[in-house]
Amino acid sequence: MASFLYSSSLYAVQVACDALRGGACDTAIAGGVDIILTPSVTIGFCQAGMLSPEGQSKGFDASADGYSRSEDVGTVLLKPLKRAIAELQNLRSNKGAVILAKTRKEFVNLLQRNSNRENVDTLIEGKAPEGNVIMRLVFVFSGMGTQWWGMARELMNTQPLFKKVIQRIDNYLGQIGGRWSLIQMLTEETDKNRISNDTEMSQVCICSVQIVLVELYKHYGVIPSAIIGHSVGEVAAAYAVRLLSMKNAVKVIYKRGHLFRKKVGLVQWLLEFNPRCIDVAAINSPTQIVLSRKTELIN
């Protein structure tokens, strides 16, 4: 059985337990899912001031300033306690199994046969290796929508290496024509809307923080096995794999953000007078939307 949204998941577990107690089944699966499919609810919560500016939930804490939304899914396999303990004692440590089935009915049948210790041809068993286990780490560099007033301030105040590399990027910005300070934006800026409303600033801030985090993680011995980048994050990803130098990465993201800033007025005009000429390509956040259309209509 599957249930959605918060406390209803507990109800699914209750129904499963009642079925076990009543003898309707000897094994039950209960699950819960929460998926954010559209930004509408998040927008409403933001307008109502319900979401934490820090993106963290701090239940029953004096510093609580809202909560954070997330997506999740969880499933539990339930059995009567005595039976579960008896079966647990018969299992080897670090042992796992996968049952291959084409339909739900077939899966349930095979699961029942396996529980009765009958031979199941599509059962694949294995044992996790003991000792050292190879962990593969992936860095994911996100695009627009992740910027916010106060981003990276704690890192600027507590990590000398982080601040040093940000200063280096700030110097590059000055060399290529930047008329604002990255240091100032990440430490002293008081206008909470400035970083969100100015694409030049927001794109540079996002990419710069991502680039510096690469160096900070490297300093602590954290090296990824794979790298993924989207939109603004593609520039930081290119730097992480050394396809771009730090200076060239800063130049690319600065020029990109500067060009986006110049297009804002045109897009607003198109939306007002001819909204059918453009399409929504992606919704990065409640306040960041990517538009797409033929080149001649955008230029």
Rank of each mutant, 00 (worst) to 15 (best):
P286N: 06
S285I: 06
T295Q: 10
P286L: 08
K294Q: 13
E272W: 08
E296G: 04
R276D: 01
E296I: 11
P286Y: 09
V290P: 03
V290W: 03
V280W: 04
E272N: 13
T295R: 13
A281R: 02
L270D: 02
W269P: 00
K294I: 01
E272H: 14
V264F: 03
Q268K: 15
P275H: 05
R276M: 02
Q288Y: 07
V280G: 02
R261Q: 14
V280Q: 05
L270V: 15
P286W: 06
F260D: 01
G265A: 14
Q288K: 14
P275W: 05
G265M: 07
I278S: 01
T287Y: 07
C277H: 07
V267F: 12
I298T: 07
P275N: 07
I278G: 00
N284M: 08
P275Y: 03
K263T: 08
T287I: 08
L259C: 08
V264R: 14
K263V: 08
F273A: 06
F260S: 05
P275V: 06
I289W: 06
V267M: 13
I289E: 00
N274A: 11
R261I: 00
L297F: 14
S292P: 02
V290D: 04
L259G: 01
Q268W: 03
S292Q: 07
V264I: 15
E296Q: 14
D279T: 09
T295L: 07
E296R: 14
S292A: 15
F260H: 03
K262V: 06
Q268P: 00
R293H: 11
D279N: 14
Q268V: 01
I298A: 11
A282I: 13
L297P: 00
R293Q: 04
G265T: 12
I278M: 04
R276K: 10
E272M: 12
Q288V: 09
R261M: 02
D279H: 11
N284W: 09
V280L: 06
Q288G: 02
A282R: 07
F260N: 04
I289D: 01
L297T: 02
R261V: 00
N274G: 03
V264Y: 04
L266P: 00
F273P: 00
L291Q: 01
D279F: 06
I289Y: 10
L297V: 08
L271C: 11
I298D: 02
W269R: 15
V267D: 02
L259K: 11
R276L: 02
P286K: 08
I283E: 06
F273M: 10
C277Q: 12
T287Q: 10
K263M: 11
D279W: 04
V267C: 10
V280N: 03
V267K: 06
F273Y: 15
W269A: 13
F273G: 00
N284Y: 10
K294G: 09
K263C: 05
Q268R: 14
F273N: 15
K263F: 07
